[in-house]
């Protein structure tokens, strides 16, 4: 498997580490007095996954390259990669 890093170009799998499903969003700082109300959102973020057979949006870290975190769309049945983008813009979006 080769991943086309937007900074470094096509690089082999062993330069990257896997960061898991990129579809979950960390719940925002709680405003609820009762923490139980946030439990479902945290449960979903920490533990529950769609785990599809097909296109999967996932984090990869180019750890032995430019060290960027990437969001890769890869088919889990063929390993064909459709899209690679930096993760930073999405992280900013979520913060705002």
């Amino acid at each position: 498997m080769l991943i086309d890093c937007p900074w470094c170009g096509e690089r082999p799998l062993h330069e990257f580490t896997y960061g898991g499903d990129a579809n979950t969003t960390r719940p925002l700082e709680s405003t609820n007095k009762d923490p139980g109300e946030d439990l479902a959102a945290w449960m979903d973020h920490v533990y529950l996954r769609a785990n599809p057979a097909g296109p999967h949006k996932e984090y990869w870290h180019h750890v032995s390259g430019c060290r960027s975190w990437l969001i890769v769309t890869r088919d889990t049945t063929t390993h064909i990669i459709d899209q690679v983008a930096f993760a930073a813009p999405r992280a900013k979006e979520v913060q705002e």
């Binding site: 898991g20 499903d21 979903d44 529950l48 996954r49 769609a50 785990n51 599809p52 057979a53 889990t76």
Partner: peptide, 15 residues
């Protein structure tokens, strides 16, 4: 996960 999803289950599992 795939068969679970047919019954509406979302599971703490990755393949």
């Amino acid at each position: 996960s795939l068969v679970g999803a047919m019954a509406g289950l979302r599971l703490p599992i990755e393949s």
